[in-house]
């Protein structure tokens, strides 16, 4: 209502005291020199509280300590490795360990000698095998060097091409011999499966 009054008074610049039945100060003069200001629509702004710098420091320190604690907890857990089920002895077996024990086998001296001799023979065998492999590789390397030399003698350009690195061989993958030969025309079963791998965080 006061708004309307205001508008009216500003447009017509006439004072109509008492006509609208409002609180009004009138001087009954035109132009009107008195004017009501609108009520300021809000309470006065709060004065900003100035905090004690000590308290601020305390708060920051608390925050820091909290983070440090979290880090410490994480570091403590970092030492714990994910459990590997396959490497752990099942509980059932730990329970039955007494009835599962076998009678201790006593090995005769003769058998011990036999085993020691076999161990010796085995290491000699592996040594020979290793030597044969190393010589074979050496031989192949020498043969390649010789071939490259001969090639260089014939044509420098071909030699240059030959000494380039073959990027398709890096990395080199080879599937080794398997225990049983592949079954001809074997169709591997292709079906749905459920992944049972547990997720460790």
């Amino acid at each position: 209502m006061s708004l309307l009054n205001n508008i009216l008074s500003s447009v017509y610049r006439v004072c109509v005291p008492g006509v609208l039945g409002q609180r009004n100060i009138g001087t009954a003069t035109t132009p009107l020199y008195f004017k009501l200001t609108q009520v300021v629509g809000g309470e006065p702004l709060k004065k900003k509280k100035r905090l004690d710098p000590q308290i601020i420091r305390q708060r920051e320190e608390r925050k820091k300590r909290k983070i440090e604690k979290q880090i410490r907890r994480l570091e403590k857990n970092a030492g714990q490795l994910k459990p590997v089920d396959e490497l752990e002895v099942p509980r059932a077996i730990i329970k039955e360990i007494d009835i599962r024990k076998k009678p201790v086998v006593t090995i005769s001296g003769e058998e011990m000698d036999k085993r020691a001799a076999l161990n010796k023979a085995w290491s000699a065998y592996k040594y020979q095998q290793h030597r044969a492999e190393v010589t074979m590789i050496d031989q192949a390397a020498t043969a390649r060097e010789r071939a490259l030399e001969e090639l260089r003698e014939e044509s420098e350009e071909l030699w240059l091409e030959a000494v380039q690195i073959d990027p398709t061989l890096i990395p080199f993958k080879a599937k080794g011999p398997v225990l049983t030969p592949p079954i001809p025309e074997y169709k591997s079963p292709d079906g749905e499966y459920i992944n049972v791998t547990r997720i460790w965080e």
């Binding site: 043969a143 390649r144 071939a147 490259l148 001969e150 380039q164």
Partner: peptide, 13 residues
């Protein structure tokens, strides 16, 4: 087949 490298591995004359 897959060739093993750009260099010849042996030589014969």
């Amino acid at each position: 087949v897959k060739f093993l490298g750009n260099a010849p591995c042996g030589f014969y004359k």
